[in-house]
């Protein structure tokens, strides 16, 4: 079941759309905000609420790359691996992160502190290479400044 808070937040969006099912993505985002990720139970909760089957909701959830269908850490690092960042050395940044965190891209550190995922262009190409941690954008990365940035995330 959706919590009251989740329900309230989803309902706040309702007046903006002529059909209830348009809220599907919005609802998944609300649930993810509260639960960290979208597990099977969350799919059923959203489906029950919107009158959609679990599978219909899953087909939407799996399409969008910012909806997590697997558990993620407290801080998700989205490393841009698109062309400008690639030219400016994002592969070196990834190697450094993987080594420092002891995980490969797609994995979560054992203490649950960081998950490392790739993301297409963050629109920060003039400050490439760039990554986003949580919802904070960090550009002009190099092997010296990355560690200080990571320290800010518990």
């Amino acid at each position: 079941m959706l919590t009251d808070t989740e329900r309230r937040e989803i309902e706040a969006e309702l007046p903006h759309y002529p059909r209830r099912q348009a809220l599907c993505i919005e609802a998944l985002k609300v649930v993810q905000r509260h639960r960290g990720w979208v597990n099977d139970e969350a799919l059923r909760d959203v489906g029950d609420y919107l009158g959609m089957s679990e599978h219909e909701v899953d087909s939407v959830a799996t399409f969008y790359n910012l909806i997590y269908r697997r558990e993620v850490g407290r801080n998700v690092i989205h490393l841009c691996d698109s062309v400008s960042c690639w030219v400016m050395g994002c592969d070196r940044v990834r190697e450094h992160l993987e080594q420092k965190l002891g995980i490969r891209t797609g994995e979560t550190t054992p203490d649950g502190r960081f998950t490392l995922l790739p993301i297409p262009c963050l629109g920060d190409c003039d400050r490439a290479p760039s990554f986003m941690i949580g919802r904070d954008l960090h550009g002009n990365l190099n092997l010296e400044n990355i560690d200080t940035i990571l320290e800010r995330y518990e």
């Binding site: 348009a22 993505i25 919005e26 998944l28 939407v60 399409f63 969008y64």
Partner: peptide, 27 residues
């Protein structure tokens, strides 16, 4: 005007995919 924030995927920028995304479907 309502501000809709997406949930990612490059194809959402294609205008008809964008319309499907706004309708809450796969883009």
């Amino acid at each position: 005007i309502h501000l809709h924030t997406s949930a990612g995927r490059y194809i959402c920028g294609e205008e008809t995919a964008l319309l499907n995304a706004l309708e809450g479907r796969r883009a």
